[in-house]
């Protein structure tokens, strides 16, 4: 079931790419930016290992900031295609636990999530010289990625519900219900 949800996400992603050049461009650009960010921040984080412990400790506030930023940024990004909205599965006989597992696994497969996992690993590398701190760094990496991914999913889904409701439509167009032509048009309506 988990694998099926991941496959479903990729099929929808592929279709979205092939249908709209805007979508494709934004994904390619997003991917390159992500690669750039990881390419600069990752080694920078890992290099903190060479510094005195006091500087290595900078990984803590840095990684915490990335986690928070990720939740906020993904709100902007996934607003475009919230393909993993649990509301789409309501008529299907899936138990909440198995659906949650599938959605979580699918959430890890995106470019931003991959980027975040790489940054989390860079943070682990920074602590490689301190055997005592290494398990804690690993645990922090796991908890950090989970927090960022679950946090952003929760916020996006909550917002999707508000935007889909009658009140929310007054505030702004619901991205999930907007027509395909609306999604690909670049003019501000």
């Amino acid at each position: 079931m988990t694998l099926l949800v991941v496959r479903l996400r990729f099929t929808m992603w592929r279709t979205a790419m092939s249908r709209s050049s805007l979508h494709l461009t934004s994904s390619v650009v997003g991917g390159l930016v992500a690669l750039g960010v990881v390419g600069v921040l990752g080694p920078a984080l890992a290099l903190l290992a060479a510094r005195p412990v006091r500087l290595t400790a900078l990984t803590v506030p840095l990684f915490a900031t990335f986690t928070l930023m990720w939740v906020v940024l993904s709100l902007v990004a996934t607003g475009v295609d919230n393909v993993l909205d649990p509301a789409r599965f309501t008529v299907l006989p899936l138990r909440p636990r198995e659906l949650a597992r599938g959605l979580l696994a699918a959430a890890y497969t995106g470019i931003p999530a991959m980027m975040f996992v790489l940054l989390a690993l860079a943070q682990v590398v920074a602590w490689a010289g301190h055997p005592a701190a290494l398990p804690a760094a690993l645990l922090a990496a796991a908890l950090g990625t989970l927090t960022a991914i679950l946090g952003s999913r929760a916020v996006t889904s909550a917002l999707a519900r508000v935007m889909g409701s009658r009140g929310g439509r007054l505030v702004g167009p619901s991205s999930s219900r907007s027509s395909p032509s609306c999604r690909s048009c670049s003019t501000s309506c």
């Binding site: 479903l8 929808m12 789409r88």
Partner: peptide
Amino acid sequence: GLRLFEQLSGRELLHYVADLR
């Protein structure tokens, strides 16, 4: 107003719904 997986084609949609069931 059911929210379907509208990024799928009609055939893909039925395939996925059946697989999820």
